[in-house]
Write a protein that binds this DNA or RNA. Structure first.
Lengths: 290, 290
DNA sequence: TCCGTAATATCGGTATTTCCGATGATAACT
DNA sequence: AGTTATCATCGGAAATACCGATATTACGGA
């Protein structure tokens, strides 16, 4: 007996499943755009190679043997995997990037942020999506060096030459907060001088050291979440995204109403002009911009 | 541009994954028993067909592109499905039946019944296993007509000519039970006459009507589980498998100790001499027999 | 019952694909 | 700089996918 080859003949599996589904070799031939003899031979060869009779041909329309039924289920899984492979290859060929990394500022919180992500998941189910948190100069650096393709940052006065920007759909709401049991919370309304006497909690970045030149002492952290925790513990006042306080520290912080606050902060979508965005990045950029 | 074919070239995917894994086309060629040029051309053609560059060849050892990494994962899934397909085809070619049906008597309860089944699952993971419940003549009929391949029945005085039997490893323990609050439970020890005055709950079968000729009135059901429920409700006494009472009705039934009880009942493994058992059926038969 | 329809198996021939071995070019290592 | 291992390319041979024609066989209608 000839040892069965360990590799499958081309398209024999598709012929098999199609014939099993349509109930006829000829129908499978029509469906696959091949001749009837091709299908007949393909299936016959497949049966020989596998050493398993797949169809009972005594009747007019070939009927699956029990063995054929069992193998049909697994053949379908094979074709399913193959189709998925071909589909994502097609998307990649059409310009889909295999992975998309986005840097987010904590300032950003779109009301339909979750729906945007699930939309992204539906459109590009094979895309690997990565989300980083970073502010200001840190985010820009990640985009510049290609670690991230898109960034959502608080609008900067000036951008590096290789960074392109667009305005995001939803501005951020930033307000001043202190711990509810802080003395500052009892002054209504507080004066700007009152704030000067209390420590400020300020956002920093890994890259930017320029701000150390600013007047007065302050504590700083690279994320709003850390700043908010510091504020909760009464270490000072901080300018924080309002959504974050409402969602993660309701009641623990008191908003200070000073002239000019709360601020409407513009959020920018940024990307690098030197690295072309893939189709998913392009889609997401447009979805996030005004 | 030539439209990309919707079908994959033979073995190109295996060449791809092997090259990605081994880090070299030549290594893949060696591993697959083909020449180096074959692998090189196969992958080059695959890249052309997919429209996706899979490897970065600028370096000595081709390195996967990000697109290649994404596709590699899905290619592995394809090959995994294909290997499973080939493996079960091989088992079927070696005589594995696609499905195995066993008729069990409720009398049977092997202490390692569950371990036998999980062993079966490990040996023949693709086998479809079906379990039926049936007693006596019913079970034999199912085996005769091919609806089931194996049966575990209480040993019969005689078998049809096309039925072969072997003794099962574990005999059954059958004892007499009544509801704990039944008057019969208070007679210690009860006399055979006492039982004659109380209704008997007896096993019947769908096929066997001969037993209606027996003396006295009785109630009957085709499964021990139903009989046990009747006994629990106080409708009479019944001969029941002891394991079933201990497991599913502890404390609710009282065992009657009469001369000759409890009985050690021999269980037979039966199959049809006219239908060859598959390898799984053969294995299970030996595993169940003494 | 007989006949037409539609199905499958088989065969010969052609086109495509796979595969090999040789050759040349390139990168890494000594 | 030489050595070695690797990849790309090319021509030819073997395998196989495919088609069209033909024989044969089940199924269904008159």
């Amino acid at each position: 007996m000839k040892p069965s080859p360990d590799t499958l003949r081309a398209d024999s599996v598709r012929a098999f499943t199609e014939a099993a589904h349509g109930g006829s070799f000829s129908a499978a031939a029509r469906a696959l755009g091949k001749s009837q003899s091709t299908i007949s031979e393909a299936i016959a060869n497949l049966e020989i190679d596998l050493g398993v009779k797949l169809f009972d041909r005594r009747t007019r329309r070939p009927k699956l043997t029990p063995e054929g039924q069992l193998l049909l289920a697994q053949a379908s899984l094979m074709l399913q995997a193959e189709e998925r492979f071909m589909r994502t290859a097609g998307q990649l060929a059409a310009g889909l990037e295999p992975r998309l990394t986005v840097v987010l500022t904590d300032r950003y919180q779109s009301p339909d942020y979750e729906s945007i992500l699930s939309e992204l998941d539906q459109r590009y189910p094979e895309l690997e999506f990565e989300c980083l948190l970073g502010e200001g100069a840190d985010a820009l650096a990640l985009v510049q060096e290609g670690r991230a393709q898109l960034g959502l940052v608080a609008a900067q006065p000036a951008y590096p030459s290789d960074i392109v920007r667009a305005t995001a759909q939803h501005p951020s709401q930033t307000a001043l907060f202190v711990a509810a049991d802080h003395p500052l919370a009892k002054l209504t309304p507080p004066m700007p001088d009152d704030l000067a006497n209390v420590r400020e909690l300020r956002l920093n970045t890994y890259l930017d050291e320029a701000s150390v030149a600013t007047k007065g002492r302050y504590w700083s952290a690279p994320s709003f979440l850390l700043l908010m925790e510091m504020a909760e513990l009464g270490f000072g006042w901080a300018a924080l995204p309002r959504w974050m306080v409402e969602r993660y520290a309701p009641g623990k912080l008191t908003e200070l109403s000073l002239p000019g606050w709360p601020q409407q902060g513009v959020i920018d979508v940024v990307w690098s002009s030197r690295r072309a965005l893939g189709v998913a990045g392009h889609w997401l950029r447009q979805r996030l911009s005004v």
